[in-house]
Nucleic acid binder design. Structure first.
Lengths: 137, 137
DNA sequence: GCTGCCGTTGACGTTAACGTAAACTTGGCG
DNA sequence: CGCCAAGTTTACGTTAACGTCAACGGCAGC
């Protein structure tokens, strides 16, 4: 059994930056805001697989329009401070609240999708009409 | 048939502000950015039902994380400049693009919902364990 | 030893989406 | 008439989420 197993991969800041198409500045910024706490090798930051997952959560949050603060909360939902779990009920409440928000968002999304469909149909119709006019003249 | 029919209702700026729980400043700001073009009675702005619909679109866009610029585009999808319809194809492309974005967003939403469910379940479990410990001692 | 290249911190700049404040007009009413 | 409430414009302030230098350290290769 060799010591160089597959477990506990690590990443450099530029590796992560490239993988997720963001800048190193951005990653450091997230750390500054307390969303990431990578290990260090002297000066240099070393990111674990868990850090990478957190980044994924942050970026997904961004796509959903969450603020960094909100993403921070979400991350803590996944990694509740082991000793800090006396706030479990608070956490559950937060989750429920967030889920409510996501639900309205989902409704908004569906509505907008439907309306976009209709808008496209109208545009397509208009285009057809124009073609007919030009070919029949 | 009286002249005071139900058609073409109008709204004052503060009426709309109250209805949608935003400030008048915000509404004027949207106008400044070209999202609204209310009629005027001298100085005073007068909003039509169409203006109100546009506001609804803007606010829904906001909930979905759209920028005002994007909401502006969306609004134009609903009210394509009649004479300006030579850009219909461009418009359709925009709609398709926007729908793609909404699709990823929908996936993100579903994923996050699912994961929140799991997180809540884990928290609930943890709570149960704690109760058992305290009652069995 | 010099040159890149990657990494670091720190400071300042930028954009979007409003908030806030000042200074003014205008219609209604007691 | 005096005054208030609601409206207006203009201008500056604010927050979040980075971008953009600047100045520096370490090390790999020539």
């Amino acid at each position: 059994m060799s010591a160089t197993s597959t477990k506990s991969r690590t990443y450099s800041i530029s590796q992560l930056a490239e993988e997720f198409a963001i800048t190193t500045r951005t990653i450091r910024f997230y750390e500054e805001k307390g969303l990431l706490q990578p290990k260090r090798n002297g000066q240099t930051r070393i990111y674990s697989a868990a850090d990478r997952v957190k980044l994924i959560l942050i970026l997904r949050g961004k796509r959903l329009g969450l603020s960094l603060e909100e993403s921070k909360d979400i991350i803590e939902m996944y990694h509740p401070d082991q000793d800090n779990s006396h706030q479990l009920q608070t956490l559950i409440d937060k989750i429920r609240e967030k889920r409510e928000q996501l639900k309205t968002q989902l409704d908004d999304l569906r509505t907008m999708m439907r309306e976009l469909d209709e808008a496209e149909a109208r545009c397509a119709d208009a285009l057809t009409v124009m073609k007919n006019v030009t070919t029949s003249s």
